[in-house]
Nucleic acid binder design. Structure first.
Lengths: 205, 205
DNA sequence: GTCTATACGATGATAGAC
DNA sequence: GTCTATCATCGTATAGAC
């Protein structure tokens, strides 16, 4: 291994990715220039190419990194027994995770079409693995008779879309607390598949 | 009124908008050039400016036009009495409408950040009016005691997000028919707010 | 109504000085 | 490791011929 002397790469690299994340989320991949990213970090445009082979790799790394982290975070949840408990747990996890990382989430959903085919395939595989986790909960719940029969794949997509939608409107410090929002979404998800919410329903509004 | 002689504007204008719709949906507003749009219609880049003042107006017109049409289509639905019937009708309408116009829908959801403030405000007002229609159904249902109490605005956003999510994965000619998909989503929506689906539940899958 | 030609700046990426 | 300078290309939009 070559020894790096006096390198700032270990710190500048992450700063480049963080700047790209912020700018891509705000303006879109296609609308952001390498010069803007460089300016955000305090570099010249040319220096960026020490940290990424090109703009496309920057996007792909952000998306793959996000999905890797998302899958790892879900895998680290405490194991629960019943399907209803697991769906409740998943819904709260998904909402909270997404509200914690609005920029990474936004990019992961909006910039798929800007991925080159090879990168798209990697990302799609990760997205599919995430969706499969929900599908498995639904299958188990139907087998146990606690969820209403319905097409599992359709329902998985629908639930994920519903839970992800929270990022479109939720603003920190608004009328609803984050826990309230997560709990409400968990209740909607459980009822949608025919199970009763685990905690008491919130007041109407 | 000035009289136009030998003008092709009446036919070329719509073709320009159609080409822009297709390209914006496929590659994103920022990634599409005026040259590409012109090539798609068979014009030179400069000639586009006979049909739109600039690229931004092209986007704004597409989005406002889409939302105007969406609101008009919903307003034209046959009036129904009960909240459950109205939510079922809305869910099927929303799914079918969105599956009919995937490109316009995609743009309306993805390109909001590329609208200049004045255009954004126009579009937001229309989106808000659409969401308010759902909120009213939920309020009526809660008042009638047929829907579970829950935050109406949160639930409206969640339901619309769920129903719109169908555009992310549904492909014509796939495993599920369009009517099946619309019916399943209507069932999920009704159950989510605590009401029983109106038609028999489909088989598990 | 459409064309060609063009203004003028920004783009992603590279080469080589320091 | 970062800079400056540069390349070839592309971007939106306009002017003026036909």
């Amino acid at each position: 291994m070559a020894r790096r002397q006096g390198s700032h790469g270990d710190i500048t690299g992450p700063r480049v990715r963080a700047a790209a994340l912020r700018l891509f989320a705000r303006h879109g991949y296609a609308a952001v220039s390498m010069r803007q990213i460089a300016a955000e970090v305090g570099l010249q445009a040319g220096a960026l190419y020490l940290y990424t082979p090109d703009k496309q790799s920057l996007l792909a790394d952000l998306m793959v990194g996000h999905l890797d982290h998302l899958l790892a975070a879900r895998a680290a949840l405490p194991p629960l027994g019943g399907p209803a408990e697991r769906l409740d747990q998943f819904a709260r996890f998904h909402v909270n995770y997404h509200l914690d990382r609005p920029e990474a989430v936004f990019i992961a959903y909006m910039e798929l079409r800007n991925l080159e085919p090879a990168n798209f395939a990697r990302v799609e595989a990760l997205r599919r693995a995430y969706e499969e986790g929900v599908a498995q909960i639904l299958r188990d719940g139907q087998a146990a008779g606690v969820f209403a029969p319905c097409d599992v794949r359709l329902a998985s997509y629908a639930l994920i879309a519903m839970l992800t939608g929270v990022t479109n409107w939720y603003r920190e410090g608004g009328r609803l607390s984050r826990d309230q929002v997560a709990a409400d979404h968990a209740a909607l998800a459980l009822r949608a598949v025919g199970a009763a919410p685990l905690s008491p329903a919130p007041a109407a509004g």
